[in-house]
Design a protein around this nucleic acid. Structure first.
Lengths: 342, 342
DNA sequence: CTGAAAGCGCTAACAG
DNA sequence: CTGTTAGCGCTTTCAG
């Protein structure tokens, strides 16, 4: 490995000058600069980043902790983040907390020393202990992504949850639906709460009252979701004509329940879900969804993080909310029989 | 940040002793050890990993480069790798080469300094230049995963491609099919070649001859795949009764073509694909597939990499091949009408 | 503008 | 067994 000393020797200047040329921190004579640059080329010098880090206390690395890398939503965010990081010459360490708050905490502790900043998608549903929150505050800056943890006041970037939900529900309203049911994930998650709020607001804005029997919540488990759907769909009085699911997992399971109960979309019930279900094209009929700008979320989160890295406590906490878009497909088209693949 | 010097001062021993206690490299008296351990607790000492790296030239970090993080196959591998890495106290830097050989090369160059070893899933289809291969050889050890690049002789871990393909084809044979078509991705990829070879072998072992008109290859583009399927399926003479796809992307597109041409599985044609198609349960009928042990591939790759990190050139190159398993679902069940969701 | 020198925090010889 | 010491490669004063 070539060092700056060797460059200095070859270029017949001092080590300090070499460093100055490389880091560009001080003015250097044209002559010296050229000699150093030549030496760099000749010896194929590559700076030792570890040594530089030791001096500068900058690692040029970011970390991201996600709850589950195998849920398609998260890799999309990771990708956006990775791209933004690399645009600035930073690396991204990716950690999968496997939906455990404890490992999430461990991972952040592990990252402390190795990164200049952290992107955190919490596994959610927990209130952060004061102790853990303090630990976060004393480490490298953290930007929360997608899920906003309770008890932790950091910068954050996520979709405009309530607005996005409203978008989906308004679409159903515009199709003439009046009895729109909503199925959410655990309401311990803030996104879920906010999406529910968006639903409520959309109905109210349309002058409708929110009927409690149309609000269904479940865990992320199939059986649970199935049970909730069954109860809601088979009840005879006040049957919904449309169903809105507040996240991809719930949507997928709800759809499955729907089908297995003999319902079809959009004929016997209109259906809209939050998030893209994978292999979209293969659902017959194709599912209308409220899609999140995943790549942008990841990308933007890194921007916010860099801002924080540069300014530390100087700026006020920023809570970015990105808009979702509605992609209308077959499952919400009324009265037009969907093409069902034989 | 607490340093070993401060520990030494508090414990009233020398810095060297502190280091010895921490790294456990030399024997230390029970008394001294206790004093140091106490000091560590009192001051909440955390070793500075950067400084340690500078000394030891070990970063305790691994890197992985994948072609596309949004294809579900890769995060699964990443997850296995990340888990294995963390079991050994290592971090994993994840990079997405966006299917570009050039950025792939760049990324490896960037990683050189920061990691002790690299997991590489090449974007494939390229023969590595001698120059690039030499660059690899001079850097941290590389283990190739899934796709084996030409012109690069490194350790590797991947599925037993030909065996896996054979498995799928034999299944179709056992159902009585004799005219089994195969659709592959680009044959510039070695996996694809080997999977094709597995197909051939399965047929030969069954005493059948391989009919060239049943071998279809296409790029990963939908239009291309569609064209190939159309040509093969609509031809009247020697029409296949079964179709085997050698990878998930191709399988998904082929299936779509099939459907759009009015075919159904398994009624008008039996269908088996390599890899799990996402949201498996939602395909109606559900698709039989040859599934790769993705998590194990990632996990094992890290094990091989660690072996290489420890032994460097000492051991001979290891080419690990993991077996696939066949998951039989509806699309290959003959004569039993699949339940098609209305 | 340049060179010398002092460390960042740690590990690894090497005397004692 | 322990203390001293010499760096890892880099940046950054600080005189000259």
């Amino acid at each position: 490995m070539v060092t700056q000393r060797e460059l200095a020797k070859l270029a017949r200047v001092s080590a300090g000058t070499v460093s100055n040329v490389i880091s560009g921190s001080t003015r250097v004579s044209e002559d010296a600069r050229r000699k150093v640059l030549d030496a760099i080329r000749v010896l194929k010098y590559q700076p030792n980043l570890i040594a530089r880090s030791l001096r500068t206390r900058r690692t040029h690395t970011l970390g991201i902790v996600v709850p589950d890398l195998t849920i398609p939503f998260f890799p999309k965010i990771v990708r956006g983040a990775e791209y933004a990081a690399r645009e600035r010459g930073y690396f991204l360490i990716v950690l999968d907390s496997q939906r455990s708050h404890d490992t999430e905490i461990d991972m952040i502790a592990l990252l402390r020393q190795r990164v200049d900043g952290i992107l955190l998608v919490t596994t959610g549903g927990y209130k952060w202990s004061a102790e853990n929150a303090a630990a976060i505050a004393s480490g490298p800056p953290v930007v929360c992504v997608d899920r906003l943890p309770e008890g932790l006041n950091t910068d954050s970037v996520c979709v405009d949850d309530s607005g996005a939900a409203k978008l989906g529900v308004q679409h159903l309203l515009s199709l003439g639906h009046r009895r729109i049911a909503i199925i959410t994930g655990p309401l311990t998650l803030r996104n879920e709460q906010e999406r529910l709020r968006g639903y409520r607001r959309a109905l109210k804005d349309a002058g409708l009252r929110v009927h409690p029997s149309l609000i269904w919540s479940a865990s992320f488990e199939m059986e649970d979701i199935q049970a909730v759907c069954q109860r809601g769909l088979l009840r005879q009085k006040y049957k919904p004509t449309a169903l809105f699911a507040t996240n991809g997992v719930t949507g997928l399971c709800a759809l499955k329940s729907l089908y297995s109960l003999g319902f079809t979309t959009p004929d016997s019930i209109a259906f809209v879900t939050f998030d893209e279900l994978i292999a979209e094209d293969f659902f017959q009929p194709r599912i209308t969804s409220v899609v999140q700008p995943t790549y942008e979320i990841g990308h933007r989160a890194v921007e916010v993080l860099f801002d924080r890295i540069v300014h530390r406590g100087a700026t006020s906490v920023s809570k970015v909310r990105l808009p979702a878009t509605l992609v209308v497909r077959d499952s919400s088209r009324t009265h037009k029989r969907a093409s069902i693949v034989k």
